[in-house]
Design a protein around this nucleic acid. Structure first.
Lengths: 238, 238
DNA sequence: TCTCTGTTTATCGCATGCAATCTACCTCCA
DNA sequence: TGGAGGTAGATTGCATGCGATAAACAGAGA
């Protein structure tokens, strides 16, 4: 027989999981820049474990799309192209639209209070601490996902939020991620009121705005491929 | 600088990747039933590799949600509850809706011909070979995903289609997956005509129908938890 | 100076071994 | 008979070591 379901797989228990989560955080928080090389023994030494652990964690991050694994060459922090970045936002919008539709009208009053408090904190921090505000904004979306109780939706939203923040860090203009609090508040109101379609529309616009504000200009100097590919076409190496 | 992008990560090159893919196929094709235990050395022996390889593959499958990993206990084929099954369909509908919206009006004529041919083959097989028809139906959705050229969307649609077939195998009634050809054809027409919203609506209804026809009855005798949980609530073990 | 080629070195791919943990069974006692 | 406790076996968690691969470098020839 199958084992009983693990309740809510709390804090990671094995070293592999710990390193996995730690690396993910480091990537999402931009402590590890896109394209950076991630050698196994360096990671092992950093965390005080063997290469085995580092290796496993890297493999899992590769499945999540946060790391690129090249056989016999090693692992690198994912370095998505602008085009891929747009694609990720497309998926995220679809997912969060569905998420909001699921949630509308099903918010208990105590949950509503929690959401209100969350948005208020966002608004309060927006002007002071930008890094913290960005983190809170992401957490808002993750909290909503968890409220659906849909495991796959939770996983996908978590992944897309992670990767979107990576993309924004690469291509986004500074300050492009703020102004979220007011829009988040509007979504929360619509959710509580039970206006499903309105909530979905608000969320969709919110994310579309974030994406377009940040991603429209195709000049992202951090990725020279974007620049060079235009020139490469006109060159004949043979 | 970051390495150049791997073109289309062809066939898996490392053993880990090979085992990873092989296990995934086995699970999706129901060769490994949900809930089945997956011991590391058994897998290693089966593939002629060491436990290390099996272990890594299992870790990656766990990230994909196809395997459940329990610390110090081992790995098990995912055993989604009916409720999770419904959740997976919710996600799939959202993704395929977005997919269709991306595609509408952007179908080149040669692609249109390919889609027509595909749907025709589905229709032809529907009455004869059920297993093959089901496989073709899944392939239709995957083909559309690939046409978007959005790597993340492709991955997610692939994953959800896989898992939906797993769910249908667990909980679906026999014959619940057919009747797809006609609905697929309608979607294709709307796509080619460029009626984005109509195509999205058609696809959404199509999937909602499949889900509800198959999943509505909450009696799925393969999962005794569904049955027992109702009784468990009335029992006090202390 | 440029290119081609042989060598070096850093890193990965994978197997194996040992300690820790869980499961199952068996014994003992009420 | 039913349950508690303890022991043996199986299986995982993790570290380490060896062979293999590819990038980096150096030297020879043009």
């Amino acid at each position: 027989m199958a084992p009983e379901r693990s309740k809510t797989k709390g804090t990671p228990r094995t070293r592999t999981e710990k390193v996995h989560h730690a690396l993910r955080s480091a990537i999402i928080e931009q402590r590890l820049a896109p394209g950076v090389r991630l050698p196994e023994d360096t990671i092992g030494e950093s965390f005080g474990t063997s290469r085995t652990i580092a290796r496993e964690a890297l493999g899992r991050l590769a499945v999540e799309g946060l790391v690129e694994l090249i056989p016999n060459r090693g692992a690198f922090v994912a370095n998505p192209s602008l085009e891929e970045g747009r694609g990720i936002f497309v998926v995220r919008r679809a997912l969060e639209r569905a998420m909001v539709l699921e949630l509308a009208g099903r918010i208990e009053s105590d949950i509503a209070a929690r959401l209100h408090e969350m948005v208020a904190r966002e608004a309060a921090l927006a002007s002071h601490n930008e890094a913290e505000a960005i983190r809170l904004a992401g957490e808002f979306h993750l909290t909503l996902a968890q409220l659906t109780g849909n495991p796959l939706l939770i996983r996908y939203v978590t992944e897309t939020v992670s990767r979107c923040s990576l993309v924004l860090a690469m291509y986004g203009r500074p300050h492009s991620a703020d102004c979220g609090a007011r829009e988040h508040a509007a979504v929360v109101e619509a959710l509580i009121a039970g206006n499903a379609e309105e909530a979905a529309e608000l969320m969709d616009r919110h994310l579309a705005d974030v994406a377009s504000r940040a991603l429209l200009p195709a000049r992202a100097q951090k990725d020279i491929r974007e620049v060079l590919s235009a020139y490469a076409k006109d060159i004949d190496l043979d």
